[in-house]
Amino acid sequence: MIKIAPSILSADFANLERDIQKVSSADCLHVDVMDGAFVPNITIGAPVVQSIRRCTGMFLDVHLMVEKPARYIEAFAQAGADLLSVHLEADHPSRIAEALRIMDRCGVKKAAALRPITKAEAILPYIEELDLVLVMTVEPGFGGQAFMDSQLETIRRVRAIVNQYNPACEVEVDGGITPKTAPLVVEAGANVLVAGSAIYGAADIPAAIAALRGS
């Protein structure tokens, strides 16, 4: 089954609880955390995730676009994240491994995220312990960017690696997901689709979620 994860990056932050309720028919909520260092933008921190947790029972898929993410795992886990994604480019491999160990200790699901510059094979040292691999189909940092067709091959390769080493692991795609691009990433092997403007910009949000899920 295809899962849909609306990105609150496209929500109205002055009415965040209202906009979270609007996407309650989705499978989980995607929360983008940016530090202004790993990516050229700043969004939210653990206190906002804690507030989100208080207003929804949805599964919180928290995407850490931050340098040296091991420093923040415990705080976001305590704030209510159900899954944390760390970028393999954000620190030395030994420290990425440490971040995953902290996730284990905190009882949250573990994910590795790949920027477009990173080959699928970068997940190999971690694949057997991951619950999800996140493939970015835009350069992380801002919403509303155009989908990068070149990333379809990365998705295919990630799916092949997952099928070989950890079939229970999910493959998530984030960036430029629309009714036009969703079938392409599903065909390539993704089963979790992150969408922001395609959902929050729709006149009928539940219908937009259903349409993407049917890709």
Rank of each mutant, 00 (worst) to 15 (best):
E170V: 09
A195S: 09
H87N: 04
Q21G: 09
F38W: 13
P179W: 02
V173F: 07
L114V: 03
D91V: 03
V192A: 04
F142K: 15
L64A: 11
S24I: 00
D82E: 07
A46P: 02
V185F: 10
Y72R: 11
G80V: 04
P116Y: 05
D131P: 00
V158G: 05
C106E: 05
Q164N: 14
S10G: 03
E153G: 04
G36D: 09
A46W: 06
I73P: 10
D61Q: 07
P93Q: 01
I44D: 08
P125C: 03
P183L: 09
E67S: 10
Q78S: 13
L152S: 03
T178C: 03
L212Y: 00
G189L: 05
T43Y: 15
A111N: 10
R105Y: 13
R159M: 04
V192F: 03
I127Y: 09
T181K: 03
E128S: 13
L60A: 06
H92D: 09
L212H: 02
L60G: 03
E170F: 13
P167A: 15
P167K: 13
G141K: 12
T43E: 12
G144P: 14
L83Q: 00
L84G: 05
V173A: 09
A198M: 00
C28S: 05
A11Y: 10
I155R: 01
L193M: 06
K68N: 12
R157E: 14
V108G: 09
G45T: 11
P183A: 05
R101I: 08
R71I: 06
I4F: 01
K3W: 10
F38S: 05
V171C: 01
P93V: 02
M58C: 07
C55Y: 11
I42S: 14
E129A: 11
G36I: 04
S25C: 11
Y165R: 11
I102H: 07
K110R: 06
S7P: 08
E139C: 11
L212A: 01
R157M: 14
D61T: 02
S94M: 10
S150I: 12
L130D: 05
T137E: 06
Y126A: 01
A11M: 11
A112N: 00
Y126F: 15
R101L: 14
Q21N: 10
S10I: 09
E170L: 12
E74R: 15
T118F: 05
E129W: 13
F13C: 03
P125F: 05
I96W: 02
T181R: 04
Q151K: 15
A70R: 12
V86H: 06
I2D: 03
E17W: 06
V33A: 06
M65T: 11
S197P: 05
V194F: 02
R53D: 07
L100F: 06
T56F: 14
D204V: 00
A90N: 04
R159P: 01
Q50Y: 13
I155E: 02
L83V: 00
I42W: 12
R71Y: 15
S150Q: 12
R18L: 06
S215V: 01
